[in-house]
Design a protein around this nucleic acid. Sequence first.
DNA 1: AACATTAATCGTAATATTACAATTAATAAA
DNA 2: TTTATTAATTGTAATATTACGATTAATGTT
Lengths: 111, 111
Amino acid sequence: MGLTKTDIFTAEQNRVADLAKAFAHPARVAILQLLAQRKACVCGDLVDELPLAQATVSQHLKELKRIGIIRGDVDPPRVCYCINEPVWNEARQTFGALLDSIMAVDCCETC
Amino acid sequence: MGLTKTDIFTAEQNRVADLAKAFAHPARVAILQLLAQRKACVCGDLVDELPLAQATVSQHLKELKRIGIIRGDVDPPRVCYCINEPVWNEARQTFGALLDSIMAVDCCETC
DNA sequence: AACATTAATCGTAATATTACAATTAATAAA
DNA sequence: TTTATTAATTGTAATATTACGATTAATGTT
């Protein structure tokens, strides 16, 4: 991401940014949609559904796990990925609150 | 962002990703919060509120304008930035719908 | 016209992301 | 134990992002 200065922003701002990153790549959106709709679950099935190499899908899954929005339950040799509902709900709450926090008044006569 | 294959995903998935990108960096979250709460409006005021160089803030504003989530009304030599409410509402609708689309059933016995 | 103010752009360096082939676990099945 | 299956990891190349100093553009002011 380049040299982001995460230390100079609030924990909340950094968390919002991280949750947004889960959705900030079309492949991850596709993965999260497949999981949320229960259209796929096992890593291999996700790879079959997506026009990306297995390593690439695995990398996206790793990022989603880092953020916490998905879980990965091992059932050797498979891994079943699911939405991690508490974090999914955190995302809904976070984006909902943020997007509802807009003031109705205009800022100045220019706008 | 690396070599993302935007052509292989749906327009909707790419749009979600773009809207998420608006919130995927803490500096942009901070900017959007300042604008949404009407705490700042003029570019220079945003620069004063943020621990970033003027050029960096300008770059983030450019990205937010590209996405469409803010407007920039010129009032020379100032520019007044505001939330572009139609796109802000699009984001609320998009994230709301996406985050509400989760299926209640479990995907398999592993999870 | 000369100067001041403000924001955009340019140039550049540092770092992160994305993608994939190849390899490596890790476990089940034979 | 050997083999097959599945997912993670490693290595690497291409590209994008982030940040900032310096400059430029665009307009108001004197």
